[in-house]
Amino acid sequence: MTSFVVKRVGAALGIVVVLTFVMFFLQRISHTDPVHAMLGAGASPAAVRAEAHRLGLDRPLVDQYFSYLKGLTHLDFGTSYRLREPVSTALATYFPATMELTAYSLLFALVIALILGVGGAGKWKGAGVFRAIMLPAACIPPFLLAMFGKIVFYEHLNLLPAAGRISSSVANPPTGPTGFLTIDGLIAGKPNVTIDAFIHLLLPALCIALIPAISIGRILRSSIEQTMQMDHVRTARAKGLKERSVLLKHALRNSVGPALSMAGLQLGLMFAGVVVIEIMFNWPGVGWFLAQSIPQGDFPAIAGVTLVLSITYVAINAAVDVLQAVADPRIRV
């Protein structure tokens, strides 16, 4: 088991190093002048040179790369050209918002998946409806869902907000300790913050959650249907238990393993998909930060966000691999 974990972690680190290499050299060999863009049209060549020197951009490329890697070991992602502050500071500001949105998206995905998986697995009359919902729902891209949600729930029904993380009318929202406004509001004794933050994340979180929910729900349904054919389920039926009790007490628990594995993989994908939703809902997370940084050629910011999202994705996948190996020793083979 130890060697398996070491191999997985080593592979994850290798992926991250390769990623930094590709990102770094692609940016450096591209036809851009981020320093001139950062200073503006009127900046004199001398001013551009001085700023480039200050940022270390006039050093040899390989030297710059190893300095960058060395900085990463101290969580130093460099200085944002746009914000003029360390990228790590910006990430500390934006990442909790992404984490909170993703966490709720996962929760919503699990709840929806459970409903769809269990509802679609039984032999009751409504099961077909659940199965019919899953196929078309899986085809709706999140950005379309976001547009639909904004038009229906904000523009027409006026039920849910369509932008931001909290209303500006909420005075002094807490800034810690978790970075999750829904939790920090409770800790600080400000339930209005929790409620307002929860309402703000409903639409974006549901938009992110839908497709993963379908994927997890389908796996769960298949797994339940297989389990329902097994001997212990037949025995439970023979004992005279109602079909609902058989499903929930004897089949469901034995069927959630594959679905949870899928949930782990979907969580990684959620971090990738969150970028589009954050832009559409003006959600101040790392995806939104990334979207503002790209047009400015703010490489340290772009690389910082990419690395953090990539590391999160790789770490989640590695964790899923390890957990699967713990649950099923055959996987190590």
């Binding site: 851009t32 002048d33 981020p34 863009a37 047009p295 400015q296 050629g297």
Partner: peptide, 8 residues
């Protein structure tokens, strides 16, 4: 983008 234009 601006960063590309400024490089020309």
């Amino acid at each position: 983008t601006d960063t590309v234009l400024y490089g020309f």
